[in-house]
Write a protein that binds this DNA or RNA. Sequence first.
DNA 1: TAATCATTAATTAGTAATACATCTTGACAG
DNA 2: CTGTCAAGATGTATTACTAATTAATGATTA
Lengths: 240, 240
Amino acid sequence: MRRALTTYARRGLHGQTVEVIARRILAGEIAPGATLDITALQAELDVSLTALREALKVLAAKGIVDARQKRGTFVRPRADWNLLDGDVIRWQFAEGADPRLLDKLHEVRSIIEPAAVRLAASRATDDDLTALDGALDEMAAAKGHPTAAVAADLSFHRALLAATHNELLERMEVVMETGLAERDRLVHGGEPHDDPVPSHRAVVDAIRVRDATAAETAMRGLLEKAVRDVEKVRGKKGNR
Amino acid sequence: MRRALTTYARRGLHGQTVEVIARRILAGEIAPGATLDITALQAELDVSLTALREALKVLAAKGIVDARQKRGTFVRPRADWNLLDGDVIRWQFAEGADPRLLDKLHEVRSIIEPAAVRLAASRATDDDLTALDGALDEMAAAKGHPTAAVAADLSFHRALLAATHNELLERMEVVMETGLAERDRLVHGGEPHDDPVPSHRAVVDAIRVRDATAAETAMRGLLEKAVRDVEKVRGKKGNR
DNA sequence: TAATCATTAATTAGTAATACATCTTGACAG
DNA sequence: CTGTCAAGATGTATTACTAATTAATGATTA
């Protein structure tokens, strides 16, 4: 059930190096098109050239930087970044994040999930349903424990995507994961929430009886509630 | 307009090393869970340890391998792979590809694109429409030139996703790109095709007049045609 | 005996110095 | 004005080494 938060290995000195450079770029501190001063970075971060290069290879693999002989290592245009990469999404939230990112993530989620429940309704196996029930139990048990509630929410949505039996849809998890967690973080601290279990159970029940339309409707209900929750918090905090 | 095919830098000896190892893993030659014999690989590919390690960093960044001290470098379970990464998708098609991958890609496409045209209908700017018209022109000019036709098709779908003004949706391009290209490759060689321009123009026209429903309908028509084309070819070739 | 803690060994992580390959720039010739 | 070639800058790769991490093993102690 437990899952790694990052794809690349974050262990060791080298992992920190990746994080530091990535956050600088993602926060806009180093702008697209700018060439990285390798020697300065090396001195500042106090790492060897080899270690630094390995860190940059990770960023290159995610489309963030590119190294060209004689021209240097530079930040690629944002259009080339692998925004569907879990690490890239996470780094964006780290600092100076565009608040609209959350809306964009939600937009993707509200495209994927209604379609996903339809597929789940036609393809879910007994194991999938067991996993979904498990997530509901987890959600019920998490009442009053914000961290556990977020984890349960993620479990539910993961189980749902898994029930589509389409690997690619399943991996959309990374897009939703951070958004979901961020939303939960934002929303918590508001008034105590109404029990999320019934609304989620409605989705599972519809999948169980293979009623795609009912499942989709129930899911759209969840999505609308998510929007209302965020709007409520934003309104309170005076954000637009 | 031209765009890099890979995200990581494929230049140099190192780039080849990544490709070789990636393809072996993606083709199943090195199974998930297996530990890589670094020294053997080094000898076989005739590269230095450093170069090999940098290549492995690229794969690590895409969630394909993980290196743990004392335990070795091993292939991560497929569930951890960044399947939404353009390189990973491309590598899967390279050899021994699961034919169902194409169906999965199409499934994602048929979820994303109808939703995308709805958004495009409400958000497309004049520039977006110009880009779409340009893609239609390209498509018209490409008549009889398979390669150019594929390129034009890709331009169209890219312009469409761009018109949603959601970066994340825009990056779904990588998921569709390879699938689209692969489908076109598969389908060409069949009988001469009917002109694709009118059906695509219908989508653009609906977007221009901001008729989301008409745009969605037109898009679903395109998607169904895509399915029929592939089925026709598969039936002919005796594939199931 | 069973639990705990220290030792060992295997393997990746990191350093450093150096040589190599290749791309860009710009000079020069046609 | 255009193509070719040389120089130099800079990323790429090699080598050899040391450090850190951790699974497994064995010793010690309750």
